[in-house]
Amino acid sequence: MVFSRTLNSVAGNARLATDDLATEVGRLRRQPGEGVVSLGGAGLAAIAEDLIDEYRQFVNPIILGNGTPYFPPLAQPLDLRLTESRILSSRVVYLRYQRMR
Rank of each mutant, 00 (worst) to 15 (best):
M1Q: 03
M1G: 01
V2C: 08
S4K: 04
S4Q: 10
R5S: 14
R5Y: 05
R5K: 13
T6Y: 06
T6C: 05
L7K: 14
L7A: 15
N8F: 02
S9P: 02
S9Q: 13
V10M: 06
A11L: 11
G12T: 10
N13V: 02
A14H: 13
R15W: 06
L16C: 04
A17E: 10
T18D: 12
D20T: 01
L21P: 00
L21S: 01
G26S: 12
G26L: 03
R27A: 13
L28T: 06
R30G: 09
Q31G: 10
Q31P: 11
P32H: 07
P32L: 07
P32W: 05
E34F: 02
E34R: 11
V36G: 01
S38T: 04
S38E: 04
S38P: 03
S38G: 06
L39H: 13
L39C: 09
L39N: 14
G40T: 02
A42V: 05
L44D: 00
I47Y: 13
A48W: 00
A48Y: 00
E49V: 00
D50H: 08
D50Q: 10
D50A: 03
L51G: 04
L51W: 10
I52Q: 02
I52A: 04
E54R: 05
R56L: 01
Q57W: 14
F58A: 01
F58W: 13
P61W: 10
I62Y: 06
I62F: 08
L64Q: 11
G65H: 07
G65F: 07
N66S: 15
G67W: 11
G67I: 12
T68A: 10
T68K: 12
T68M: 13
T68C: 04
T68S: 07
Y70N: 11
Y70G: 08
Y70C: 05
P72Q: 13
P73A: 06
P73S: 04
P73C: 02
L74K: 05
A75D: 15
L78C: 11
D79Y: 00
L80D: 03
L80M: 13
R81Y: 03
L82H: 07
L82I: 08
T83C: 08
E84M: 08
S85M: 09
S85W: 09
I87C: 12
I87V: 15
L88C: 06
S89E: 13
S89M: 04
S89K: 04
R91I: 12
V93M: 15
V93K: 05
Y94H: 15
Y94I: 08
L95I: 05
R96S: 15
R96A: 15
Y97V: 01
Q98K: 11
M100P: 03
R101M: 14
R101V: 15
